[in-house]
Design a protein around this nucleic acid. Sequence first.
DNA 1: CTTATTGTAATAATAATAGTTACAACAACT
DNA 2: AGTTGTTGTAACTATTATTATTACAATAAG
Lengths: 152, 152
Amino acid sequence: MQISSRFTIAIHIFACIDVFGKDYKITSDFLAGSVNVNPVVIRRLLTQLKAAGLITVARGTGGAAIAKPLDEITFYDVYLAVECVEDNQLFHFHDNPSASCPVGRNIHKGLDDKLERVQAAMEREMKSITIKDAKEDIEKYIAMESSATNKP
Amino acid sequence: MQISSRFTIAIHIFACIDVFGKDYKITSDFLAGSVNVNPVVIRRLLTQLKAAGLITVARGTGGAAIAKPLDEITFYDVYLAVECVEDNQLFHFHDNPSASCPVGRNIHKGLDDKLERVQAAMEREMKSITIKDAKEDIEKYIAMESSATNKP
DNA sequence: CTTATTGTAATAATAATAGTTACAACAACT
DNA sequence: AGTTGTTGTAACTATTATTATTACAATAAG
């Protein structure tokens, strides 16, 4: 199955805070409008991102802010924070393979290191990409939009 | 969310066919016994693996066999065959981000190449591991079992 | 004290996975 | 030809995760 949209929504949240944070108070309603989901979905994500130390959220008065420089937050940090996979295991093992079959008894041990390698390769790449990279490209596309409409 | 157990079950199936194929007819019931799932779950997987050209299944008389040398079947081949992610997109994008928000309009374009990189890193690693690698390690663990019990 | 907002519980809707029963289609064997 | 064991597949259920939604107490500022 696919990795939950919580991940792409979380990155969307960072981009919004960074782009609009100076001009607007970033509330869950504001973010819900840009992402186009229910505000509660946003609040749950904000809670997770806050727990991971990636953002701060002002209770009562409202408003989210980013807690670290954007180039110190990797995709992997976000991926971990929003708990896309349970127990940090990308692959789901079938439980209870037959203990009376030699293959059933040893399939897990025989596969673990290989699945670890695949997961590590994915995580390594995620660690090499920062929110700053994403934000800059999004801004680049935004700039291209306006230059296109501003053509004489 | 995690990648479906169909993937690890499929590898289990290959290991069983290779280890037991010479002594037993590999029916869906036989495999279901080793994996410990319902035979229909196995048959559905066999159908997918057959469609991908990785195995052959004898209709009527019964019995599955591997269609290629084990070192020519990679984890990626199996992963594709059993359709662990839909549309071959590992990441799930939230649909309908706000078209009236600059970030909402450009989040998809701005993220696509980065998510592609992550997915490619994962797939590259999967392509580097073959069923033969898995089978050999499983057999190694099986051999360790018997040497342990055979100690004087 | 009013107001806007967060944090969170509770619930429902949707979708995917996984389990199960049932049976027609099939191929070998007697 | 009929029997047998098996595959392929449909239909249905159960379980689980995701996502959406309503509701409201807790909070902090004005």
